Simulated assay, not measured.
Amino acid sequence: MSRNPESTERRFRGKILGVGTTSGVRIVVGMWERSPFGPFTDVFLEQADGSSVLLAPDELVAAYVSGTYRFDTVSVVDLRARRTARGLDLDAGPLQASIDVGGISPLGRVLRIVPKPIARDWRWLTAIDPVARLVAPGAGTAGSAGNGRREYYGVTGAHDVTGVRGTWAGESLGSIAPLDPPVAFGFASMPRIPQVVDVETTIREPV
Score class of each variant (00 low, 15 high):
G24V: 14
R26E: 11
R26N: 13
I27R: 01
I27F: 09
V29K: 02
V29C: 12
G30M: 05
W32F: 15
W32S: 10
W32H: 11
E33L: 11
R34H: 14
P36N: 14
F37E: 05
G38D: 15
P39M: 06
T41Q: 04
T41A: 12
T41W: 01
V43P: 04
V43D: 03
L45Y: 02
E46N: 02
Q47S: 15
Q47W: 05
A48F: 11
A48I: 11
S52H: 00
L54Q: 03
L55H: 09
L55V: 11
L55W: 06
A56T: 09
A56N: 07
P57R: 03
P57E: 03
P57A: 02
E59G: 03
V61Y: 01
A63R: 08
A63V: 06
V65C: 07
V65Y: 10
V65H: 08
V65N: 06
R70M: 05
F71Q: 06
F71P: 04
F71M: 07
F71A: 08
S75L: 13
V77R: 07
R80W: 03
R82N: 00
R82Y: 00
A85W: 08
G87E: 08
L90V: 00
D91V: 08
P94L: 10
Q96P: 00
Q96G: 06
Q96S: 09
A97G: 12
A97F: 13
I99N: 13
D100L: 05
D100Y: 01
G102C: 08
G102R: 06
G103R: 09
I104F: 09
I104A: 12
S105R: 07
P106W: 03
L107R: 15
G108I: 15
V110C: 10
R112H: 11
V114I: 13
P115A: 10
P115D: 07
K116F: 06
I118N: 14
A119N: 06
R120M: 05
W122D: 14
R123P: 04
R123M: 14
W124D: 02
A127T: 12
I128Q: 05
D129I: 12
P130G: 04
A132I: 10
R133T: 12
R133W: 10
L134P: 05
V135G: 00
V135C: 00
G138L: 01
A139S: 08
G140D: 08
T141D: 02
G143R: 01
G143T: 05
G143C: 04
S144W: 01
A145K: 06
A145H: 10
N147W: 04
G148T: 05
R150I: 10
R150P: 07
E151T: 07
G154E: 05
T156G: 02
G157A: 11
G157M: 02
A158W: 04
D160R: 15
T162H: 07
G163K: 11
V164H: 02
